[in-house]
Amino acid sequence: MLDYLASLAVFAGIYALLGLGLNLVWGLGGMVNLGLAGFFAIGAYASALSALHLHFPLVAASFFAMLLAAAAGALLAVVTARLKGDYLAIVTLGFAEVIQLIAGNEIWLTNGTDGLSAIPAPGRGTLSPLAFDLSSAGIVWLVLAAIAAAFGRLSAAPYGRVLRAIREDEMVARIAGKNVLSFKIGAFSASAAVMGLAGSLYAAYDGYVAPDSFDVLVTLLVVLALTAGGVGRMQGALVGAVLVVVLTEGTRFFGGLLPGLSALQVASLRQGVIGLFLLLLLRVKPDGLLPERIRVHPLDDEGETTR
């Protein structure tokens, strides 16, 4: 049981990292980046390939993955600088599809749909499966804690305030003298880097990457997790990721309690229950479990904000 919980902790941590990355661009910057699975894949493949062919240790492979994902993020930010809302969502979703297609078709590099297996990771093969799962969970959550703290600082810092200003009204931010494009590029790269890091940890933990792993399902799960947890709050990403994993995995255990249903009915019911729960949650708490808190300065008698 402990192995299983540890493996769930690893997956929850990886989803939370993806959620944090998404929160920076979407939650703070208001840019709907559905290219998440693409950055996740770039990170996973960069890490897996550098570990397999160049024998990079996990730390180096992860830095390489972050670098490559950040570069892709910057590029995407430049290309989509003038897009907003649905249009940005469509283009970024397309980006993720392109990455998945490249992973599936550039066989010389990615081994095609066969995927890359036997990716090395610290402790794989030498530790027992339980110890490996526990140590992986430890590594993932340590990294997660560091990133969450850093993003929390960033969110409270002037940088975060500018991103929020861009989210609320890009024109106002520009008039206030902020270089909107450079902030967008910065946020996109930082977010992509964290998603790439999540990909690197995923590749190392799973030991296997294939294009199938980076379909739109990942993006959906993380968007759901962040929406349920609370967009704009870094803790929201963490709570949401844990919630989604608890929901998807917890429902596995109810199948046995429903006699007379076929396996397909149980599987379908399970996905229905997950969907229903998230719908109800957002009906009751539209801003998620941990809504964003924006400090508002009270007005004085003359209508000016107090200092």
Partner: peptide, 23 residues
């Protein structure tokens, strides 16, 4: 017999396998 759905997705399958093997 415990039957798990993999949604034809390797990540979901890995989670299912962890559950079957460990629990």
């Amino acid at each position: 017999l415990d039957i798990e759905d993999d949604q034809t997705n390797p990540t979901v399958a890995v989670e299912a396998a962890h559950k079957l093997i460990d629990v």
